[in-house]
Design a protein around this nucleic acid. Structure first.
Lengths: 191, 191
DNA sequence: CCGTCGATGACAGCAACTGACATCACCAGT
DNA sequence: ACTGGTGATGTCAGTTGCTGTCATCGACGG
């Protein structure tokens, strides 16, 4: 049985998204995913820590890109502007994947456990971003708050981008999301 | 066996926090929690949806208080200032419970599943707060972003408040956390 | 005294996840 | 060509979170 097709991970991820879409996350068993990928349940758990993780394979790459861009932003840039650079950098990870993103997000939003998992990925990003900001000399709690705010902008921007009617580019939506945050947190104005 | 001591829920919550503290969340079985509370495993699941939920009994009350305060803030107040009112209203839920909060938070931070659950509670708050802001006439995406920012301020402020050496009042820490956010999101400054 | 109702116990069962061990293809070194 | 090691997989048994179902018991109103 040492014979194996390449790309086992990818086949598992694909099979999982299909099944979660077709019959729902809870109604899908890991054994079914494994079977569709031509593998066994045990092997699924060797590739993914649990039934949720299979939907979040790209999270690491996304976080790295975000963090690196923030860390390498212009030295003179204010924290919020370093975040802006990160938000722009992250944009092209999703190039040409709007439809895929919609499918995946629909599955996630339909299930609380999956939403939990997404939130902890975002929280991990936030922690890492705060670290990057500290590396730029930003003190706490400003670093953490800026990171949280940046992740909020990403989250809201992304959701706008995958909205049914939306046509604009992700990078533009992100810019507008960031501008909305800036205006919202500027006190003494009625928006 | 219809005989039952009052406060079954409370006893379960207490037993759970104790056991999670003593031997860790994963090393504790639901059967053990139930036994310490003088009940059976089945009864545990009648009171709490799952093994995590037992630590989040107060989440509803907290959210209601936050949301109500935002909804009832001065009509003329800008969104961010309505959030400030909410943040202040929420502080006295924790009055005299700093030590308890530390114990509970230590358990949560030590386990990823529990952190996930906490994050989804905060996300629920954020959604509800955005709704309250919309009720005040705030448009999207400003409402969502303001809500997310407010929750971030709460989260960071709370963590500062339970830090080992911290002595200040929660309401004061919250104020400072909010001020830090405002300065952080004001572009064109080096902080 | 009776019937209903709410909280619980008892039991069976599913599915997520883990540990341990065997198997097989492949590859490097001899 | 033989050999030993390595990595990916299969197999199997077991624990535990969680659910459905039914029975039991005490309280309470009539």
């Amino acid at each position: 049985m040492g014979r194996w097709e390449p790309n086992a991970r990818g086949r598992l991820a694909e099979a999982a998204l299909e099944l979660y879409s077709e019959r729902g996350y809870e109604q899908t068993t890991v054994a079914e995913i494994a079977k569709r990928a031509g593998l066994t349940e045990r092997t699924f758990f060797r590739h993914y820590a649990d039934k949720r993780e299979v939907l979040f394979d790209g999270a690491n790459a996304l976080q790295e890109r975000f963090v690196d861009a923030v860390a390498e932003a212009q030295e003179s840039a204010a924290p919020i502007d370093a975040m802006a650079a990160g938000l722009q950098a992250v944009t092209d990870v999703f190039a040409g994947r709007r439809e895929y993103s919609r499918r995946r997000q629909a599955v996630i939003q339909a299930n609380a456990e999956l939403r939990e998992r997404e939130l902890i990925k975002l929280a991990s990003m936030s922690t890492a971003l705060a670290g990057a900001l500290r590396g730029r000399g930003v003190a706490e709690p400003v670093a953490s708050l800026t990171a949280e705010a940046g992740v909020a902008v990403f989250k809201v921007g992304f959701e706008l981008w995958i909205a049914p009617a939306e046509q604009r580019e992700l990078s533009q939506v992100m810019r507008e999301s960031l501008d909305a945050l800036k205006s919202a947190t500027a006190s003494g104005q009625t928006v």
